[in-house]
């Protein structure tokens, strides 16, 4: 039998920091995370699309999503299944709390050793941190080559992958041996939409801990259909070195957090009246700021 290529997409559920409204700040000026919608990290959707394209090209392949987060992060695994993923893995546990990028990468790499994929795909970065570190760090932990800023899948076979990647000014095409880690840019193809039939089928999918809380009927229903079972890993399931997890495994420490308070300076307030605008333009010209 021909080998099945296993593709895993690392994805993250993130607070929608792009749409921080007035209610997103508390009266004390701190961030009110509860008021922010939890969404599929945008570039991870581009990554999912590229993974699905790999599967389309290879034929004999599977796409699974791996995410680390609380139980509700299973939502993005279901979302990925609605759009074409075969299933997913939720890595969840209090041991992971307080992880910086390095501890996160370590935890994900432990889970990936269990899954043993041929290709790992991820978004370039997550909008809640914008660090772009986890992809390259996972690649290093697994001793795999990396291709960052992928924009287009050029070719793939079971030995190597050809990717067009974005540079600061321009692009290049690289060939990497598999297995490899690919991180995908927002400029890559947008993710395909949900498929109605898949939504009908996979809306019943549950992660292990969700299943435990479900009623008997739902449990029996999912027990008969393994494709609706989202695999859940606790820390102990992925054989980590506990000292490298969470806060203790994080070399960087947050010393101080300041909420952004704008320092008021002497702003001159003007109206949109002709008189005000003309005076402003005259002043800018007189001070040689303009012209």
């Amino acid at each position: 039998m021909e080998k099945v290529t296993k593709i895993v997409v690392m994805a993250k559920q993130v607070p929608d920091t792009r749409n921080v409204g007035k209610d997103a700040m508390t009266a004390e000026g701190t961030v009110n995370r509860a008021a922010l919608a939890a969404i599929f990290n945008p570039e991870d959707l581009n990554a999912l699309e590229m993974a699905l394209q790999m599967k389309d090209t290879l034929g004999n392949a599977t796409v699974h999503v791996l995410t680390m987060g609380p139980q509700r992060a299973a939502d993005i695994i279901r979302e990925a299944m609605f759009r074409g993923a075969d299933g997913g893995y939720l890595l969840s546990g209090k041991e992971f709390a307080g992880s910086d990028t390095l501890a996160t990468s370590y935890a994900l790499s432990c889970a990936l050793r269990k899954i043993n994929p041929d290709i790992i795909v991820a978004g370039r970065q997550a909008i809640d941190g914008d660090t772009a570190q986890v992809g390259p760090q996972v690649a290093e932990k697994l001793d795999l080559p990396q291709v960052t800023y992928a924009e287009e899948l050029v070719a793939i076979n079971d030995r190597e992958i050809t990717i067009k990647r974005r540079l600061e000014r321009g692009s290049e095409v690289v060939v990497a041996p598999l297995p490899a880690v690919i991180t995908v840019n927002a400029s890559a193809k947008e993710c395909r939409p949900r498929n109605a039939k898949r939504v009908m089928k996979f809306k019943y999918a549950l992660a292990t801990s969700e299943l435990a809380a479900a009623d008997d009927k739902r449990r029996a229903f999912i027990d008969e259909r393994s494709c609706l079972h989202i695999v859940e890993f606790a820390a102990a399931d992925v054989d980590p070195d506990p000292t490298q997890l969470g806060l203790s495994g994080s070399p960087t420490k947050v010393k101080k957090i300041e909420n952004v308070v704008f320092q008021a300076k002497e702003a001159k307030t003007l109206t949109a009246d002709d008189k005000d605008i003309e005076a402003l333009m005259q002043e800018l010209i007189a001070s040689h700021t303009l012209g």
Binding site: T17, R18, V31, I127, K253, K255, E258, V260
Partner: peptide, 18 residues
């Protein structure tokens, strides 16, 4: 002291690496 905006720029974090 490694100082950077975080959380979509709504906070400023000072990070150290002791």
């Amino acid at each position: 002291y490694q100082i950077r905006p975080a959380f979509g720029g709504n906070i400023i974090a000072t990070i150290v690496n002791p």
